[in-house]
Design a protein around this nucleic acid. Structure first.
Length: 517
RNA sequence: GGCCAGUUCGUCUAACGGUUAGGACUCAAGAUUUUCAUUCUUGCAAUAGGGGUUCGAUUCCCCUACUGGCUACCA
């Protein structure tokens, strides 16, 4: 490894919301930078004007911030750059569309070195070649053999080349892949990889149509100019690695070439293929950190809106394709930073398990105090028109917290604390409300009316003393009371419930049940 | 089809030549309990197949199968 300061980048394309696989790539870059005291750069790769989606860039910034992944350098939400402490913006701008005038000279440099060439095939021609090959069960590949048969600057008069370039933008610059060369590469996660250049195609580097470089050119140039030391990206880029090696070589930048690490992909919970937006809709879980509304108005759910704590989301995602080698599963960002290493990244794709995601959130929920959870819960109560005190919310939360995976579950688990039952569970009623039970409940009412103080311990003792004296069965009595007070066979200990709702409400609920049942 | 990468319980994964192949999620059973949960205990469940190398292979090598990615003037 080089001794120079670690600089990594996360370089998303604003073609839609950032999905959880992208967040994980950003996270691993972020952790790697933190771990090595390096710099984490956010660069926006918007060289594809056709697929540009308004709002996507802002979404990426917002999503990363919600996750606690804050860039040291790069585009921020004001559209400018995050400044260094010195106030300088050493490698700005960080949006490729703002850097567009700087790529052309590099493309030309490759042409002049005879490592790239102008090609004049029209899209229609290429489509027809492809079609033809397919009809014979083959795949069209634009390689060294093909470029000898078609018109390009390699086999044309230079004057004719400049004439054609001048008169239309119906041309591209393609990389001239060596015919027969072994490209030996190294990946920090996968080890040594080698590919024969003959199997590669002459990738387009420059799109004349919109006057912009393609990903491959812009990416290599920017990584070089921004002095990126480590490229940590998804496995879908592995097939491009040979091209990228070749580009570094053609530019004469081998010494500055970053080290590469290709992360395993996130796979669908079921079926085949990589995780996609559709899977979330189909199986009922979010694939995006934040809710997203597409320009056409289509909504996709988000982890934030589904009630996940960002810490839980990050924790869950960190353990998809990486593990610390110990049995610890719960990590703060600081702990992740301390433990993270590329050596422990898994090579194979990780199937996403929505059940385990919920479990992570539950763990974080359990680590919060009653008063923190009450603060989380209060706004939800307000939304339902419930006015209550922080104290009562805290009491309720302490009783129901271990039944929930999310704060948004709290209401369904505790509604009877705030509003008396409107109906009584029929099955429970049938089982509990038998002849003779009415007088027993009336008896408990008398006990409760006199119980002083009206707290859980005292209530419990008073009730049990009475039940024992009368010779009843505890279950029979308590279940009947539960039917009256809660209306369903659920919830924490009854004396706790009564203490929270208070004597007045308790007696009212009993009277109402006696009148109704 | 071609190229590249991968393959341990249903899922996420540990074991970097010697373990009764461990943990977590899920599921099941039992205990506790006034209900429902929680909690605790227990259980089910894996080295893709075939060849090598080795005293010994989950681990190293080869072949096969399967899985994934890529194969655009997209990233």
């Amino acid at each position: 490894m080089s001794k120079e300061k670690v600089r990594v980048r996360f370089a998303p394309s604003p073609t839609g919301p950032l999905h959880m696989g992208g967040v994980r790539t950003a996270l691993f870059n972020y952790l790697f930078a933190r771990k090595h005291g390096g710099t984490f750069v956010l660069r926006i790769e918007d060289t594809d004007m056709q697929r540009f989606v308004p709002g996507a860039e802002q979404y990426i910034i917002d999503a990363l911030r919600w996750c606690g992944i804050v860039p040291d350098e790069g585009v921020d939400d004001s559209g400018s750059v995050v400044s260094e402490p010195s106030g300088r913006h050493p490698y700005a701008p960080y949006r490729q569309s703002d850097r567009k005038n700087l790529y052309e000279k590099y493309a030309l440099q490759l042409v002049n070195r005879n490592d790239a060439y102008y090609a004049f095939d029209t899209p229609a021609e290429l489509a027809s070649y492809r079609h033809e090959a397919e009809s014979q069960g083959e795949t069209f590949i634009y390689n060294h053999a093909f470029r000898k048969k078609t018109v390009n600057s390699l086999n044309m008069d230079p004057a004719e080349v400049s004439r054609r370039i001048g008169e239309s933008n119906n041309w591209v610059i393609r990389f001239k892949v060596p015919e027969d060369k072994t490209i030996a590469m190294h990946d920090l996660i996968r080890g040594d990889i080698s590919v024969q250049s003959g199997t590669l195609d002459d990738k387009v580097l420059w799109k004349a149509q919109d006057g912009l470089p393609t990903y491959h050119l812009a990416n290599i140039v920017d990584d070089y100019l921004m002095r990126i030391t480590h490229v940590i990206r998804g496995e879908e880029w592995l097939p491009s690695l040979p091209l990228h090696y070749l580009l570094y070589e053609s530019f004469g930048w081998q010494k500055q070439r970053p080290q590469f690490a290709h992360l395993p992909l996130l796979l669908k919970p079921d079926g085949q293929g990589k995780l996609s937006k559709r899977d979330g809709d189909r199986l009922g879980f979010p694939v995006f950190p934040l809710e997203w509304t597409s320009p056409s108005g289509e909504k996709s759910r988000g982890y934030r809106e589904d009630g996940y704590y960002p810490e839980a989301f990050i924790n869950m995602i960190a353990l998809l394709g990486w593990n610390p080698g110990t049995e610890q599963e719960i990590f703060s960002m600081e702990e992740l930073t301390a433990r993270f290493s590329l050596e422990r990244v898994i090579k194979s794709g990780a199937r996403f398990n929505p059940e385990k995601a919920k479990w992570f959130n539950q763990q974080y929920l359990r680590n919060r105090s009653d008063s923190q959870l009450a603060q989380d819960f209060l706004p939800l109560l307000r939304d339902r028109g419930i006015t209550t005190t922080a104290l009562k919310a805290e009491q309720v939360v302490s009783l129901i917290r271990n039944r929930a995976g999310f704060v948004k579950d709290f209401w369904d688990l505790s509604d009877y604390f705030f509003i008396p039952p409107e109906s009584y569970d029929p099955a429970m009623q049938k089982k509990i409300w038998k002849p003779g039970i009415r007088s027993i409940v009336e008896g408990t009412r008398k006990v409760l009316a006199l119980c002083e103080p009206f707290d859980a311990t005292t209530i419990e003792q008073a009730l049990h003393r009475w039940i024992e004296a009368e010779g009843f069965k505890t279950g029979q009595v308590m279940n009947a009371l539960r039917l009256c007070l809660v209306g369903k066979p659920q919830g924490p200990g009854l004396s706790d419930i009564m203490a929270v709702i208070g004597r007045e409400d308790t007696l009212k609920r009993i009277d109402h049940a006696l009148n109704t049942l």
